[in-house]
Protein backbone atom coordinates (compact mmCIF):
# COMPACT_ATOMS: atom_id res chain seq x y z
CA UNK A 1 0.00 0.00 0.00
CA UNK A 2 2.68 2.49 1.01
CA UNK A 3 4.42 2.02 -2.33
CA UNK A 4 1.38 3.62 -3.93
CA UNK A 5 1.69 6.53 -1.53
CA UNK A 6 5.31 7.01 -2.50
CA UNK A 7 4.49 6.78 -6.18
CA UNK A 8 1.74 9.37 -5.88
CA UNK A 9 4.16 11.55 -3.95
CA UNK A 10 6.58 11.41 -6.86
CA UNK A 11 3.84 12.32 -9.32
CA UNK A 12 2.44 15.19 -7.23
CA UNK A 13 5.90 16.66 -6.76
CA UNK A 14 6.36 16.53 -10.52
CA UNK A 15 3.15 18.53 -10.98
CA UNK A 16 4.40 21.01 -8.40
CA UNK A 17 7.52 21.45 -10.49
CA UNK A 18 5.44 22.04 -13.59
CA UNK A 19 3.53 24.90 -11.95
CA UNK A 20 6.44 26.32 -9.92
CA UNK A 21 7.07 29.98 -10.73
CA UNK A 22 10.40 30.53 -9.03
CA UNK A 23 13.65 28.61 -8.87
CA UNK A 24 13.83 27.77 -5.11
CA UNK A 25 10.40 26.05 -5.02
CA UNK A 26 11.34 24.15 -8.17
CA UNK A 27 14.46 22.83 -6.48
CA UNK A 28 12.68 22.04 -3.21
CA UNK A 29 10.04 20.07 -5.09
CA UNK A 30 12.82 18.20 -6.82
CA UNK A 31 14.35 17.43 -3.44
CA UNK A 32 11.01 16.10 -2.19
CA UNK A 33 10.51 14.06 -5.34
CA UNK A 34 13.90 12.47 -4.83
CA UNK A 35 13.00 11.80 -1.21
CA UNK A 36 9.87 9.93 -2.30
CA UNK A 37 11.99 8.06 -4.84
CA UNK A 38 14.37 7.12 -2.04
CA UNK A 39 11.50 5.86 0.13
CA UNK A 40 10.06 3.91 -2.78
CA UNK A 41 13.42 2.25 -3.47
CA UNK A 42 13.87 1.36 0.18
CA UNK A 43 10.39 -0.16 0.32
CA UNK A 44 11.21 -2.24 -2.76
CA UNK A 45 14.46 -3.34 -1.20
CA UNK A 46 12.68 -4.40 2.00
CA UNK A 47 9.97 -6.31 0.14
CA UNK A 48 12.48 -8.83 -1.16
CA UNK A 49 14.48 -7.03 -3.81
CA UNK A 50 18.21 -7.30 -4.18
CA UNK A 51 20.61 -6.08 -1.51
CA UNK A 52 22.23 -3.74 -4.03
CA UNK A 53 19.01 -1.72 -3.97
CA UNK A 54 19.91 -0.48 -0.48
CA UNK A 55 23.17 0.92 -1.80
CA UNK A 56 21.37 2.55 -4.69
CA UNK A 57 18.79 4.04 -2.33
CA UNK A 58 21.63 5.42 -0.24
CA UNK A 59 23.12 7.01 -3.34
CA UNK A 60 19.79 8.68 -4.10
CA UNK A 61 19.62 10.03 -0.57
CA UNK A 62 23.15 11.41 -0.62
CA UNK A 63 23.25 12.73 -4.18
CA UNK A 64 19.75 13.70 -5.16
CA UNK A 65 18.18 14.60 -1.85
CA UNK A 66 21.13 16.29 -0.19
CA UNK A 67 24.06 17.22 -2.42
CA UNK A 68 22.61 18.25 -5.76
CA UNK A 69 19.73 20.46 -4.50
CA UNK A 70 22.09 22.16 -2.05
CA UNK A 71 24.56 22.76 -4.83
CA UNK A 72 21.86 24.25 -7.08
CA UNK A 73 20.54 26.49 -4.33
CA UNK A 74 24.07 27.71 -3.68
CA UNK A 75 24.54 28.53 -7.34
CA UNK A 76 21.34 30.62 -7.25
CA UNK A 77 22.58 32.51 -4.22
CA UNK A 78 26.00 33.06 -5.68
CA UNK A 79 25.01 34.35 -9.09
CA UNK A 80 22.25 36.58 -7.66
CA UNK A 81 20.01 35.98 -10.62
CA UNK A 82 16.34 36.91 -10.91
CA UNK A 83 14.60 33.93 -9.33
CA UNK A 84 11.61 33.84 -11.66
CA UNK A 85 11.66 30.88 -13.98
CA UNK A 86 10.28 32.59 -17.05
CA UNK A 87 7.56 30.73 -18.92
CA UNK A 88 7.19 29.89 -22.56
CA UNK A 89 3.85 28.39 -21.54
CA UNK A 90 1.85 29.68 -18.57
CA UNK A 91 1.36 27.48 -15.47
CA UNK A 92 -2.33 26.69 -16.13
CA UNK A 93 -1.72 25.50 -19.66
CA UNK A 94 1.41 23.69 -18.45
CA UNK A 95 -0.59 21.77 -15.87
CA UNK A 96 -3.18 20.87 -18.46
CA UNK A 97 -0.44 19.61 -20.79
CA UNK A 98 1.07 17.68 -17.89
CA UNK A 99 -2.25 15.91 -17.29
CA UNK A 100 -2.51 15.14 -20.97
CA UNK A 101 1.01 13.69 -20.98
CA UNK A 102 0.11 11.56 -17.96
CA UNK A 103 -2.87 10.15 -19.82
CA UNK A 104 -0.75 9.51 -22.91
CA UNK A 105 1.83 7.59 -20.90
CA UNK A 106 -0.99 5.42 -19.52
CA UNK A 107 -2.20 4.73 -23.02
CA UNK A 108 1.34 3.90 -24.11
CA UNK A 109 1.81 1.54 -21.18
CA UNK A 110 -1.37 -0.43 -21.76
CA UNK A 111 -1.54 -0.40 -25.57
CA UNK A 112 2.12 -0.73 -26.55
CA UNK A 113 3.96 -2.32 -23.66
CA UNK A 114 1.15 -4.77 -22.76
CA UNK A 115 2.11 -5.00 -19.11
CA UNK A 116 -0.06 -7.42 -17.19
CA UNK A 117 0.97 -6.82 -13.60
CA UNK A 118 -1.08 -3.80 -12.44
CA UNK A 119 1.48 -2.50 -10.00
CA UNK A 120 4.20 -2.70 -12.62
CA UNK A 121 1.99 -1.06 -15.24
CA UNK A 122 1.09 1.80 -12.94
CA UNK A 123 4.67 2.49 -11.99
CA UNK A 124 5.90 2.24 -15.57
CA UNK A 125 3.27 4.73 -16.72
CA UNK A 126 4.26 7.00 -13.87
CA UNK A 127 7.96 6.70 -14.64
CA UNK A 128 7.37 7.48 -18.30
CA UNK A 129 5.22 10.45 -17.31
CA UNK A 130 7.92 11.81 -14.99
CA UNK A 131 10.49 11.47 -17.77
CA UNK A 132 8.25 13.32 -20.22
CA UNK A 133 7.48 16.07 -17.72
CA UNK A 134 11.20 16.51 -17.07
CA UNK A 135 11.63 17.09 -20.78
CA UNK A 136 8.66 19.46 -20.66
CA UNK A 137 10.30 21.54 -17.93
CA UNK A 138 13.53 21.66 -19.94
CA UNK A 139 11.79 22.88 -23.06
CA UNK A 140 9.22 25.34 -21.72
CA UNK A 141 11.14 27.17 -19.00
CA UNK A 142 13.56 29.96 -19.75
CA UNK A 143 16.21 29.89 -17.01
CA UNK A 144 19.26 27.73 -17.64
CA UNK A 145 19.00 26.29 -14.12
CA UNK A 146 15.53 24.94 -14.82
CA UNK A 147 17.03 22.95 -17.67
CA UNK A 148 19.39 21.31 -15.21
CA UNK A 149 16.45 20.48 -12.94
CA UNK A 150 14.48 19.14 -15.92
CA UNK A 151 17.37 16.88 -16.80
CA UNK A 152 17.50 15.58 -13.23
CA UNK A 153 13.74 14.94 -13.25
CA UNK A 154 14.15 12.95 -16.46
CA UNK A 155 16.85 10.92 -14.78
CA UNK A 156 14.58 10.30 -11.78
CA UNK A 157 11.98 8.99 -14.21
CA UNK A 158 14.53 6.69 -15.79
CA UNK A 159 15.65 5.40 -12.46
CA UNK A 160 12.06 4.67 -11.52
CA UNK A 161 11.65 2.76 -14.80
CA UNK A 162 14.75 0.70 -14.12
CA UNK A 163 13.72 -0.10 -10.56
CA UNK A 164 10.14 -1.06 -11.32
CA UNK A 165 10.71 -2.88 -14.60
CA UNK A 166 13.85 -4.84 -13.81
CA UNK A 167 14.62 -4.29 -10.13
CA UNK A 168 17.43 -1.91 -11.04
CA UNK A 169 20.16 -2.10 -13.63
CA UNK A 170 23.28 -4.18 -13.01
CA UNK A 171 24.99 -2.60 -10.04
CA UNK A 172 28.10 -1.30 -11.78
CA UNK A 173 25.97 0.47 -14.40
CA UNK A 174 23.69 1.97 -11.79
CA UNK A 175 26.62 3.18 -9.74
CA UNK A 176 28.43 4.76 -12.69
CA UNK A 177 25.19 6.40 -13.79
CA UNK A 178 24.86 8.14 -10.46
CA UNK A 179 28.46 9.29 -10.57
CA UNK A 180 27.88 10.48 -14.07
CA UNK A 181 24.83 12.51 -13.07
CA UNK A 182 26.75 14.17 -10.30
CA UNK A 183 29.64 15.10 -12.59
CA UNK A 184 27.29 16.44 -15.22
CA UNK A 185 25.45 18.62 -12.69
CA UNK A 186 28.77 20.08 -11.57
CA UNK A 187 29.83 20.75 -15.15
CA UNK A 188 26.47 22.30 -16.01
CA UNK A 189 26.74 24.43 -12.88
CA UNK A 190 30.15 25.67 -14.02
CA UNK A 191 28.68 26.60 -17.37
CA UNK A 192 25.74 28.43 -15.78
CA UNK A 193 28.26 30.36 -13.74
CA UNK A 194 30.32 31.27 -16.80
CA UNK A 195 27.25 32.19 -18.85
CA UNK A 196 26.11 34.47 -16.07
CA UNK A 197 29.49 36.23 -15.91
CA UNK A 198 29.71 36.72 -19.64
CA UNK A 199 26.10 37.41 -20.60
CA UNK A 200 24.91 38.82 -17.24
CA UNK A 201 21.80 36.63 -17.48
CA UNK A 202 20.97 32.93 -17.72
CA UNK A 203 17.98 33.13 -20.04
CA UNK A 204 18.37 30.45 -22.65
CA UNK A 205 15.97 32.12 -25.05
CA UNK A 206 18.50 34.91 -25.42
CA UNK A 207 21.29 32.51 -26.34
CA UNK A 208 20.52 32.77 -30.03
CA UNK A 209 23.57 34.18 -31.78
CA UNK A 210 24.50 30.96 -33.55
CA UNK A 211 22.16 30.30 -36.43
CA UNK A 212 22.03 28.65 -39.84
Amino acid sequence: MHTYVFLSGILIMTYFMVIAKRLPPLISSFRLQSLFLFLFTVSLAISGGEPSLYVVAGLILILKVILIPTLLLRIIKKIKVNENLGFFMNPQLSLFTALLLTYLSYLFTFRVMNLIDRMQAASFALALCVTLLGLFIMVFRIKALSQIVGLLVMENGLFLTAVTMCRGLPFIVEFSTFLDIFISVIILGVFVYRINTLFTHIDVNKLDNLKG
Partner: peptide
Protein backbone atom coordinates in the same frame (compact mmCIF):
# COMPACT_ATOMS: atom_id res chain seq x y z
CA UNK B 1 30.01 34.27 -25.83
CA UNK B 2 29.59 32.16 -28.95
CA UNK B 3 31.59 29.21 -27.63
CA UNK B 4 29.75 29.19 -24.31
CA UNK B 5 26.42 29.24 -26.09
CA UNK B 6 27.53 26.37 -28.29
CA UNK B 7 28.82 24.39 -25.32
CA UNK B 8 25.59 24.88 -23.40
CA UNK B 9 23.44 23.75 -26.29
CA UNK B 10 25.78 20.84 -26.94
CA UNK B 11 25.70 19.50 -23.41
CA UNK B 12 21.96 20.03 -22.90
Amino acid sequence: KASLEAAWKYII
